[in-house]
Design a protein around this nucleic acid. Structure first.
Lengths: 145, 145
DNA sequence: TGATTTTGTTATCAAATGATAAGTAAAGAG
DNA sequence: CTCTTTACTTATCATTTGATAACAAAATCA
């Protein structure tokens, strides 16, 4: 394999993923949710329930700042904290009904727009795309730990 | 295809791409380059030469702010402006030698880390990953225009 | 038990980013 | 040759984000 060409393809691909997801979601995410807050909501949606520390670790946001942003999200009624039984220091976070509805809308919109791009593809190609996603996710774009 | 499962896979995948690329690049990008500035450098590296307007459009940064950040990058000797012949309003931007060296280092490091993940895979699987990248890039994660 | 670590909070400050107004110079249109 | 549009700059202000110090409460360790 040509390493140089592979690097370039990789960089162009990751940049495209960034840009396309941004383009596809920017008009669905409410104005009063900042990018950092959206990132947190997305993480909660995919991994709930999560603790503050987990959010802090995975999203690379310091604990004080995580606490602050989470407070804002709670004030917007998008997520809820509840106690973890067995360790009274910890708090689990999950989306509220309102937050879940919001994220369902965003994910649905995002999914539909990607789906739109695939609608003309043959069934086998759709399947190939599905498998490509899984392959890259499990073999290349996975997180340690 | 199960649409719900597909949406979830898509969201989890795009989030993973964000996080892994962040993890893999954060210790290679110099401290005095901000995230927005890095995004601009990456775009220039992939698409050079580019105009200010193109950067503004593609990276979703207003012209005044693009101008400001580009000025900072020029002051750091990472990129250069040069005139576009035929239209004296426009300016092309390209990486300076120093900027090119920086981005080569980042791309190389990023590529090596991904390569590390694939090194145990059989040649056919490496080829499959390569093809999966191209498939998703051309069929799903491409930008209009 | 007392010391230390983990988990989270509040407060505060600085830096990065976004948004807007106002201006310049060149190109293009009528 | 004016008028309008395009490409870009400078200046300014508000918001977001990041970083740090200081604190509290519960768990764990020795």
């Amino acid at each position: 394999m040509d390493k140089e060409a592979f690097f370039h393809r990789l960089v162009a691909f990751t940049a495209a993923v960034h840009e396309v997801t941004h383009d596809f979601t920017k008009d669905v995410i409410p104005d009063d949710i900042t990018p950092v807050q959206y990132g947190i909501l997305e993480y909660i949606a995919v991994s709930q329930p999560v603790t503050l520390s987990q959010i802090s670790d995975c999203k690379h946001i310091s604990m004080p700042n995580t606490s602050r942003e989470l407070k804002k999200l709670s004030e917007k009624n998008l997520c809820e904290k509840f106690d973890v039984e067995g360790d009274r220091r910890k708090q689990f976070i999950r989306l509220s009904a309102e937050g879940q509805a919001l994220m369902n809308g965003v994910f649905g919109q995002l999914g539909n727009r990607f789906f739109e791009r695939m609608k003309d593809a043959a069934a086998e190609e759709q399947q190939a795309i599905n498998e490509a996603l899984e392959l890259l996710h499990t073999k290349v774009f996975y997180r340690n730990r």
